[in-house]
Design a protein around this nucleic acid. Structure first.
Lengths: 142, 142
DNA sequence: TTGCGTGCAAAGGTTTTGCATGGCA
DNA sequence: TGCCATGCAAAACCTTTGCACGCAA
């Protein structure tokens, strides 16, 4: 817990802008740093870590803790965090390591099922399906 | 990916023995190393990492990634992994840490769905649902 | 002015890797 | 004998932290 945001700084603005305009999720701290570096914007790496954690606490950004080996992923969700509609699931390929982002109603029903039948409140942010992706399956069967 | 086991070594035997007799899950690599050290058994730390990853690939051990900051946890599940008939799923409570074993047809259909619709071959041995268990939900709402 | 935010560099911890040696089959 | 496995230490890696300075309110 890094605490909530108190001041509005230039670095925070830059970070938010980048996250908002990011085409897809799966943004890591190093992604942010490299972008800033290539754009001449000087934002320290430690600041990115500290600010992005604040954004998580503020509820503007989701944090995915996929694997201790890989860096944490972040995704902008904005203020209208309707978590229930369009919950996002993640699949990790055990072979190539790709992280697949999945929006799927059928998968969303899992959460309902787990809650109703098993009393278990699923946390989709942390849950990752492990397996073999499409591409690797084909390569393996060749 | 560390690959499957080819040779049967003394270190592997020691590791398996420890994991089999472990009362509960939540075993980390440093747990293993400390145990070996206190017992005079000399097994290198790198070996533990390499062997335990093999055991995961062999399907004898599950790997849990609780948090990128914390070390990974391992749990012995043994050979009787009847993957096809009544696939077993695991749910981890983020609050109390309990690991729930779940046999559920409806959950088994997830694997089918992921394969047919998304081309993803699920590995139920490695997949863990994170969330809050029944008991903790009630405690939280009190 | 107050105290939070920043930046740099260094530390922290876990996991991986290079390379020579040892051991299983 | 041919490889795989081991061990040690060093490296790689992500993330956190200490401290002095800067800046928002």
């Amino acid at each position: 817990m890094a605490g909530r945001t108190k001041y509005n700084t230039k670095q925070r603005e830059l970070l938010l802008e980048y996250l908002e305009n990011a085409p897809h999720a799966h943004i890591t701290v190093s992604d942010v740093c490299e972008y800033f570096k290539s754009n001449g914007a000087s934002v320290g790496q430690a600041t990115v870590y500290r600010q992005i954690e604040k954004l998580v606490d503020d509820g503007l950004v989701n944090k995915y803790s996929i694997d201790p080996t890989c860096p944490a992923c972040f995704e902008y969700i904005g203020k209208n965090s309707h978590v229930s509609e369009g919950t996002c699931f993640h699949c990790r390929c055990e072979k190539c390591g790709t992280l697949i982002h999945m929006h799927c109603d059928e998968l969303s029903q899992i959460a309902d099922h787990l809650y109703r039948e098993h009393g278990f409140t699923l946390n989709p942010l942390r849950t990752v399906f492990y397996g073999i992706c499409d591409k690797c399956s084909k390569e393996l069967s060749e």
